[in-house]
Simulated assay, not measured.
Amino acid sequence: MVPGKLEGKAALITGAAAGLGEGIAEVYAKYGAKICMVDLSPDVEKTAERIRGMYPEAEIIAVVANVADKQQMIDAAAKTKEAFGSVDVACCNAGVCRLAPFEQMPDEMRDFHIDVNIKGVWNTCQAVIPYMLEEGKGAIAIASSVTGDIVADAGEAAYAMTKAALVGLTKCLAVEYADRHIRVNCSQLGYARTPMVEKMAVESNPEDPESAINDIAVGVPMKRLAKPTEVGELFAFLGSDESSYLTGSQVVIDGGSTLPETMSIGTN
């Protein structure tokens, strides 16, 4: 294990079975955090076992829970406290994205986004903050997105709405708990190579989803998608004391994708 900035901290990470959550958990283990990996999928235990194999000294528990169910998140936070003695960091990463034309999007799809993306973060924060108040400190990192708050694509109405809402929640919680030493920040990711993005690519281009992913990279100045562990490094910074004077911030991590004014004008 690499001794590091998260040593001694207990972190609850949602959506940890795959994709960004897996990358976050891997980086947290690298920096010495004690981790509760939470996911709706039972595969979270397999992912935890893989990370234990990488970092044998890491203290990791896996909990199968639905972020949309408040009691299940209260129970997950309690298990974190029981296992490690504290809940110092929460990485509210679990999220979903389904594409559909707005006029055809069923209420069930809209509500699915609200339940996971908004209520899931709300429930996670309400579950962990009481323990942080007991400790007199804590850090929460919320996975928002560039989508909704900065940019959007057709068919993303539910996703964009819910991810933009998380920016407002971040700012409010940051103000509300600042004098009690709980910091709340959010990431605004562009695209990373994750199962969710691969599913979106299938929805966008069923005949050739890989071309949809390649076309994303074309529009990114760095010409690639993020690796989940690169996002994990940002979450590690937001959860560590290195970011001790940072709260209420929106940190864009998108390879520069929101910077170009056009794709056709310029000297390059």
Score class of each variant (00 low, 15 high):
90 A>I: 00
146 V>W: 10
243 S>F: 03
163 K>Q: 12
254 D>M: 04
116 V>R: 11
87 V>N: 03
172 C>L: 09
119 K>R: 15
84 F>E: 03
127 A>E: 11
65 A>P: 02
208 D>W: 04
33 A>L: 09
235 F>Y: 15
259 L>W: 05
254 D>I: 03
244 S>I: 09
206 P>T: 03
179 D>L: 11
138 G>H: 12
159 Y>N: 12
190 G>V: 08
166 L>V: 12
182 I>H: 02
51 I>A: 01
259 L>T: 08
146 V>A: 08
12 L>C: 12
261 E>L: 15
253 I>L: 15
71 Q>M: 11
3 P>N: 00
59 E>C: 02
141 A>N: 06
257 S>L: 02
170 T>D: 07
87 V>T: 03
105 M>A: 07
147 T>A: 14
160 A>G: 13
79 K>I: 06
13 I>F: 06
141 A>S: 14
143 A>L: 09
117 N>W: 08
8 G>E: 02
170 T>I: 07
165 A>N: 11
267 T>S: 14
51 I>S: 00
146 V>K: 06
25 A>P: 01
31 Y>Q: 01
33 A>R: 03
246 L>V: 15
150 I>L: 13
89 V>F: 03
239 G>Y: 08
83 A>W: 09
108 E>M: 01
195 P>T: 07
68 A>C: 02
64 V>D: 04
183 R>L: 11
255 G>A: 03
175 V>D: 04
173 L>W: 12
134 E>S: 05
97 C>S: 14
92 C>Q: 11
198 E>H: 04
85 G>D: 04
23 G>K: 00
206 P>N: 04
186 C>V: 05
263 M>V: 04
49 E>N: 15
20 L>T: 13
79 K>T: 04
159 Y>Q: 12
211 S>P: 03
225 L>V: 06
163 K>I: 13
184 V>T: 13
19 G>D: 00
168 G>Q: 07
235 F>A: 04
249 S>H: 14
261 E>D: 05
198 E>L: 09
11 A>P: 09
197 V>N: 08
108 E>K: 07
218 V>M: 07
195 P>D: 04
113 H>R: 07
178 A>R: 05
167 V>D: 06
119 K>E: 10
203 E>C: 05
231 V>I: 14
131 Y>R: 01
86 S>I: 08
117 N>K: 07
195 P>E: 04
18 A>W: 05
200 M>Q: 14
164 A>Q: 06
71 Q>R: 12
